[in-house]
Amino acid sequence: MRATITRQLGRARRRLVYGLLGIGILVVAGYMINQALTTSLVYFILPNEYAQSPSQYDGRRIRLGGLVAPESVRFNDFDLQLTFLVTDGIETYPVQHVGAPPELFRENAGVVIEGSFDSGTFVSDNLLIKHSEVYEAPEDGHIDVEELRRSLQ
């Protein structure tokens, strides 16, 4: 009888210890995930953020996010040289990229480009499209630039 009670007490205590341990691990894991996501996972920077401290990114490989400025796209299909201006509405930088533009690449499209700055021009080797969460049927026709800009924030 006594042995049973002792065993049950031991089990209750062990359950408590494991429970607290589990909660502790959860808290630590949650904290770590949050830290990792907020500090190191700034996926891309905006042109105006680059403009604030260009030296910080000197020669470093970065991702730059922005919109393709209207009437700035030039593509030479002989040597696949693609140039355009990327803008966040505050700062604008010229971009050089080698390769055919992706299917959804167009004026006012959101882009994320990977590469580095070389004397004021962003030399990109990877051109990604960042489309907004707006899906509509073609009749609507127009593209809301403001909405696209907000989707970049």
Binding site: L41, Y43, E103, L104, N126, L127, L128, H131
Partner: peptide, 14 residues
Amino acid sequence: PTLNTFWTWDAKLT
């Protein structure tokens, strides 16, 4: 075909 990459290590995909 849409974003021009199979994979990227952004927060959601990670």
